[in-house]
Design a protein around this nucleic acid. Sequence first.
DNA 1: AATGAATGAGTCTTCATTCAT
DNA 2: AATGAATGAAGACTCATTCAT
Lengths: 198, 198, 198, 198
Amino acid sequence: MPELSLRDKILDISRGLLLNNGYYSISMRKIASQVGVSATSIYLHFESKEHLVHTLIEEAIEELSTALEQSTENKTSTIEKFHALIEAYMDFGITNPEKYEVIYMVKSDAMGRYPKEKFRKVRKGFTLLESIIREGVNDGVMDVENPMMAAYIIWAQMHGVISVILNQRLDSRIEKARFIEESAEQIIQGFLVRTTII
Amino acid sequence: MPELSLRDKILDISRGLLLNNGYYSISMRKIASQVGVSATSIYLHFESKEHLVHTLIEEAIEELSTALEQSTENKTSTIEKFHALIEAYMDFGITNPEKYEVIYMVKSDAMGRYPKEKFRKVRKGFTLLESIIREGVNDGVMDVENPMMAAYIIWAQMHGVISVILNQRLDSRIEKARFIEESAEQIIQGFLVRTTII
Amino acid sequence: MPELSLRDKILDISRGLLLNNGYYSISMRKIASQVGVSATSIYLHFESKEHLVHTLIEEAIEELSTALEQSTENKTSTIEKFHALIEAYMDFGITNPEKYEVIYMVKSDAMGRYPKEKFRKVRKGFTLLESIIREGVNDGVMDVENPMMAAYIIWAQMHGVISVILNQRLDSRIEKARFIEESAEQIIQGFLVRTTII
Amino acid sequence: MPELSLRDKILDISRGLLLNNGYYSISMRKIASQVGVSATSIYLHFESKEHLVHTLIEEAIEELSTALEQSTENKTSTIEKFHALIEAYMDFGITNPEKYEVIYMVKSDAMGRYPKEKFRKVRKGFTLLESIIREGVNDGVMDVENPMMAAYIIWAQMHGVISVILNQRLDSRIEKARFIEESAEQIIQGFLVRTTII
DNA sequence: AATGAATGAGTCTTCATTCAT
DNA sequence: AATGAATGAAGACTCATTCAT
């Protein structure tokens, strides 16, 4: 039974607290008190609040990135990869709300700018999507003029769908699972060649 | 040229500051200092920080709501209305970033719950979209099973597109205007009947 | 139907508010808001918060003083006067809690020292008590060595009884009216000559 | 010579400041500045101003309670106990003005209600007085109809005497010590059987 | 590896008072 | 006689951080 290290406990609690209200919603005291240690102890693992939050962001990016890469690994056809990648992204957002939102906190003026070079890793998943699209175009299964643009549009749409769910903006009459499924389908179909059956 | 009233100046500055980090990112002091008055003076116009933010939200909702309604007023065909509504929404988000984001701050646990009855107005624009879709289905120009679901998907997609832009996540190689245009087109096409020319 | 003047309304409200928590418990704003005028308006009648409170004290002292003097006016025997004075004092305290307590606020460091010369009027009632005692000693009905001392003791005892009641420290099993009555009787008897019947 | 702990210093200073004007007269800032620490430091020992004041009240009640109990411990006759208890109460009030007054601050609307169960301890001393009176009645040395009522009257009278002194209302021509002594005697005599020598 | 004590700066808010109208 | 706008000082309290142990 591997005990969570203090460092990881701190990250866990912080991530949870962060969800509510961004950078300002967490305080070293609150984290410490929830973890069950003194506030001072946090400084043994993170040199500042900013460092702590940066770590959080870094790990979330890393995890999302990995999830995206793995999703396509054992897929062969382009369409399958396309499907898998989109599903993986949506899945990550829905099942890891805190981690997903943390990635989108980077912007905040509150904390010192998140180092750009670290942020580049987010683009890895993005590049993957782009290359799948290119592949699809080559294969003749996807109908896209500008693959990079398409990748951005897809990403934006997925982000919108996840946001709506995470922010609990969905009408109660709509079933979450169906909404996700249909949204994904809608996004995907928008970029496939329309095979019209005469 | 009528001077902006102090009340309006306060709202303006607050809206700007709010962009950064939600409810906690603004402070009465910061607002006051930027406006150029004492912190106390704010209380002559707003009874509390919460009241101030609620006012901000209320005004933003009102404005978006109006923009959406007006957008379809002088349109005749369903398709035109559909186009117009989507364009109006995207436009509002892009040209009024602070107001757009303020509307999406409602959720925050930080401030006392935003009164539900006021929030209902947001849904007005939404209902408008839904009814246009129903109209389109009747007219045979839109291919939609569940109009409410479709409306939500459209809304989510638009929100995603706007978010990506407002959060400056767009690659510098992509031109903003084209991105908006193509995204809108993509969203719209996804719900129209595919008139296939054989 | 003589309308209360604004000045008097202010005094009335202030006196009520003062009851709770001394000098700091009232604020010009609260008074103004309860009276239904702007805070500024108070300054048309009182030059400062201190002046307002001083006025309150002055009027309360005046009123108590008058009540004590009148109580003995139509009494003939010394014993009757003694009884009347004690009853009047207790009565004033019980029926005018705010006024009674205001008199005892003088001490407070919070406001500028209440001018001593004005405070002297309190002593008028006191002197009256003392002279009645002297009279009683002369008449042979009161058994007192040092009249001034006796007057102080009587006064202190009455103050204690009133305080206990005003501060709601009385056990609920004790009836207020009986407590007052018996206390008064106890105080009085303590200073009368014991006429022992053999 | 053990240095006073910061906690105790804070309590000491607070008690002194409290004398002036009740709950509102003390401020965390004032206390801190007099103690010579930052205002923040107070919060290391007391979680709030209310908690601080409650502690003050609790300790004062405790101390008075103990003093009263001890006063009668090595006394044998009822009269002795009666004397001792009254003397102890008066003594406590005169020698610990701040502590005495703190006990009587409980009422204040300003702070959150002082927990009733803690306040019950005040009544312990009171019950002691009542039982001594009952004993005296049994022994035939005290002339009292209703012991509880008598206890309240005695308590009220003592409180009056102490208040007069603490509020510096005593005429300068009257010697404090004699006033206390004579008041006590007056109170005591009022409840003893009058042993008349024919 | 961990903590209690300490603090300066900042949080929202209330206060008495002034001034122009 | 009355007020709205304005403000500096002060209120309780929280924060991130440091330091000695």
